[in-house]
């Protein structure tokens, strides 16, 4: 029997931004679906369904952006588990870990590389997920800039209008949402799997911040 230690892995800003992003993605997906294809119709012009959907979409988008900024800030200010370095596993040793992870997740091997924070695969995945989030934000601002006057909107996303046509930007903004859904499905599945097999409290850690680690860390 190993001796289990409680290790404080996910600091408060990490947990806060995780759950804010979670709520924002839900709000943005529902309202985004409505904006793309209105699934409920108003009975009278006194209602303001599309207006509210867009309002919630825009407010959630700003909250999501702020949450992402805090997360990136904490990648430089936080502990080693939150560091930006885990997003770029490009050293020889870590690349070998990546191959080990690949064998583990494809059920070829039962050996799972030990990591208190993110595994190498998780870190790399989050790097791509952050790129996806960044694309959603930039393409969102590109569409938003159509109605906004001022210098800031072309900087935040309006420049994309000279790269793609507006319908193409809308399409990619929409399709990226499904890629986020794919990530969420895998994220939940793997968290549940590892929580139930490794029993190190990975599920609870995103609420409490603590994981249980055998031996000294």
């Amino acid at each position: 029997m190993h001796e289990l230690n409680r290790v404080y892995v996910w600091e408060f800003p990490i947990r806060l931004t995780h759950w804010i992003s979670f709520l924002c993605i839900i709000a943005l997906s529902i309202t985004g679906f409505y904006i793309a294809s209105p699934f409920a119709h108003a009975y009278s012009t006194n209602q303001y369904i599309m207006g509210w959907m867009r309002f919630i979409h825009f407010v959630s988008a700003y909250v999501f952006l702020m949450s992402l900024i805090i997360r990136v800030y904490w990648a430089f200010m936080g502990n080693k588990y939150a560091s930006w370095k885990v997003w770029f596993p490009f050293t020889g040793e870590r690349l070998r870990e990546l191959i080990g992870d690949f064998k583990f997740y494809t059920l070829i091997s039962r050996k799972h590389a030990h990591a208190v924070g993110h595994t190498v695969t998780a870190g790399l995945t989050y790097f791509f997920v952050f790129l996806l989030f960044a694309f959603e934000i930039v393409s969102g601002f590109a569409i938003y800039s159509l109605t906004q006057k001022g210098f800031i909107w072309p900087v935040l996303g309006g420049w994309l209008l000279s790269v793609w046509s507006i319908p193409t930007i809308r399409l990619l903004h929409h399709l990226s949402m499904y890629l986020i859904f794919v990530f969420i499905g895998m994220h939940l599945y793997i968290a549940w799997w590892l929580d139930s097999t490794e029993k190190n409290g990975v599920m609870g850690s995103i609420f409490s911040g603590y994981k249980f680690v055998a031996g000294k860390e």
């Binding site: 080990g100 059920l107 039962r110 050996k111 799972h112 590389a113 030990h114 499904y178 890629l179 859904f181 794919v182 499905g185 895998m186 599945y189 799997w193 097999t197 490794e198």
Partner: peptide, 27 residues
């Protein structure tokens, strides 16, 4: 895409449950 992901994950879970018993090892 979402359905394919869900199906893939379900298949993954079933294969995992059916494979010969053995302790997952941690390195």
């Amino acid at each position: 895409l979402a359905a394919a992901t869900a199906a893939g994950l379900a298949a993954h879970g079933i294969i995992r449950a059916l494979r010969p018993k053995g302790e997952d090892k941690e390195e």
